[in-house]
Structure formats: C-alpha cells, structure tokens
Write a protein that binds this DNA or RNA. Structure first.
Lengths: 156, 156
DNA sequence: ATATGAAACTTTAAGCTTGAAATAATTCAC
DNA sequence: GTGAATTATTTCAAGCTTAAAGTTTCATAT
C-alpha cells in the first residue's frame, strides 16, 4: 500500500494506483509529524485534536453520531475519545430533554481555550509542512481532491 | 483535522490548511473502503496487506527495520503484524548467518500466492474508487504530491 | 581481551480503531 | 395502547499504533 521507490509499475490503471500510493504516503508522513508535535508540545493526540476541532466549530454542541459521521470513524471509537476528554475536563456531555438516548457533547470553557491555542500552532505547522506548495497549487490540488471525492462518495 | 463542510475559513495560509484537510479526508475515505473490502472479501487487514505488498516486491526478503522504515510505522508495530502473518503461515523469518540480531522476513509460497490474488482485486478497487480521476489528472496530482513530499521530507 | 557504545529487534503500557453485540429510548403500525 | 422495528449510544474483543524501555548481538577503541 504505502509503496514508494523501486520498480515503477506500468500498464492500464497503474496511474491511479500510483496516485493512491502517493496520496497515502503524503498524508501518513504529515500525520506522523503532527502526531509527534501534538504530543511533544501539548501532550495530546491527533484523535483528541480532531474531536475538539469538530466541537469548536459547533458551539451549540454535537451528538455522538454527528461526531462519528463527521470524523469518518466508528461510533465506539468516539465514545472512548470523548470519555477521555471529559475526564480531562475539556469536554462535557449534556443530557437532552427531548431525546433521552442522546447527549449533546461540547467543549468546556477550558477546552475552548486549550483548543484555540493548539489550533493556532497547528495551522502554523501545516503552513510549514506544506510551505513548498504554492497557494495556487494548493487551491488547484484542493479542487481536484474535492471533486474526486464527491464523485464516488455516497455510493452505498 | 478532518474538517469538512461549514464556515470555510479564509485568510493567509488557509489554502494550505484546506488542502491538508482535503488530503486527509480523501485518504481516510479510501482507506476505510479498502479496509472494509479486505475484511469482507479476504478476511485480512490493511496493515497485513501493506506488509505483504512490501515483501512481495522483495523476493529476497527484508529486515524488520527495512520494513518499518518503508512502511512509515514503528518497529514494534511491524513485530506484531509479522508475528501474526507468521502464525498464519504467510510469512517466514529466517535467521541470518552474518548478523544474529537480524532476520530476513519473506513471503512463503502460500503468502505469495495469497498476495497475488488480493493485489489484483486491490488494484481493481483503486481503479473503481478513483475512476472519475482522469489518467491525466492522476499523473498531474501524483507529480504534485511527489514534489511536495520530497521537499520537506528528510528534514530532521 | 574487554569495555563501551551502537544497532536490530522485542516487549510493554497506553491509547486508538473497528465491527459486532448489547442497552435503552423512540417511533410507528396496527 | 402494544408490540415491532428503528435509532442512539455504549460495551466488548481483537487488532493496530506509538514511544519508551529492555535484550541480545555486533563493532571498535583501547
């Protein structure tokens, strides 16, 4: 999967395979770097950051199922991450009157402050790690990725 | 991190942030789909597939450290995955005469056959999932990703 | 020869991840 | 209104992942 150098395959369809391999290697490389910095600088993790980022954009809160759908991870996964964030005082669950199966999850005041700091650093890191990509290329690449995704997404 | 729809941020540097988010969402979406199919069709996992793919390209075998470097994962990680592949008879470790710290890891006959089958299906899936990307765009995107990566890689 | 350090690998603890099974609450058909 | 599906969430087992600590082996400088 994460193939790299070596006997460059050729033939029909190989271009897409190569694209996928590059895509995967690029995101894994960046992810690894972010994970390391989040740990070193803020003693946190990428999954926690993802959850907080989602909640930061939704001051009114999110349901667990909204979170898992948005983050593209399983339900049970989110449960665990939120549990940990709650125990750290960064996130709170609020039972709802309407539907007692659900609970609104939101950042605490402390969580909001903490996230703002981390997010600023994060944006700087991305700027650094993708620094060699021109703003122009960035926009072009983004466009390609967006359209490709919307094409096959929502199949099943 | 995996932000998506909603209040499109703007400002300097935001284009690269947006690019990163798209990149991550694209690869996670495809990865999830591949993982699911590997499980359903072949009862295996993405990490096992990755290791087997690496070994398939190296009939003479690879050291554990080669594997972990190539796959961009930690040493301990590879140990576990290889352990499982060995217990399934798909991979073999061979002690070396020269250096008794190391062992050459390679696919067994059974592993080679199994991988060939899975790899064929895998390539088809990629063709399907990235089908809407023209071969031309695929090559262009690949080029962009390659150059961006080689730029900041090998920093530390 | 022998310490000293480096290298290759494994082990461990903690956390992330999934898919499936279990719980609980709601909705809907009758 | 009762029972049957549906929905939201949690729990669970198995496996993946990392960073750090530990083991064994090798290289090298005395």
């Amino acid at each position: 999967m994460v193939a790299g150098p070596l006997p460059a395959p050729s033939g029909p369809g190989k271009d897409r395979l190569r694209l996928w391999i590059r895509l995967l290697r690029a995101s894994r490389t960046i992810e690894a770097e972010l994970r390391e910095r989040l740990k070193k600088e803020f003693n946190t993790t990428l999954p926690r950051f993802d959850v907080m980022a989602a909640l930061y954009r939704a001051p009114e809160g999110m349901l667990m199922s909204d979170l898992s759908r948005f983050l593209l991870v399983s339900n049970g996964n989110v449960t665990g991450i939120v549990d940990r964030l709650v125990s750290e005082g960064l996130v709170a669950r609020a039972r709802r009157n309407g539907d007692r199966r659900t609970s609104m999850v939101r950042l605490t005041e402390e969580g909001t402050q903490a996230f703002a700091t981390i997010a600023a650093a994060h944006e700087g890191w991305i700027g650094e790690l993708l620094g060699k990509v021109s703003e122009d290329d960035a926009r072009r690449l983004t466009g390609m990725l967006t359209s490709f995704r919307s094409n096959w997404e929502g199949r099943e």
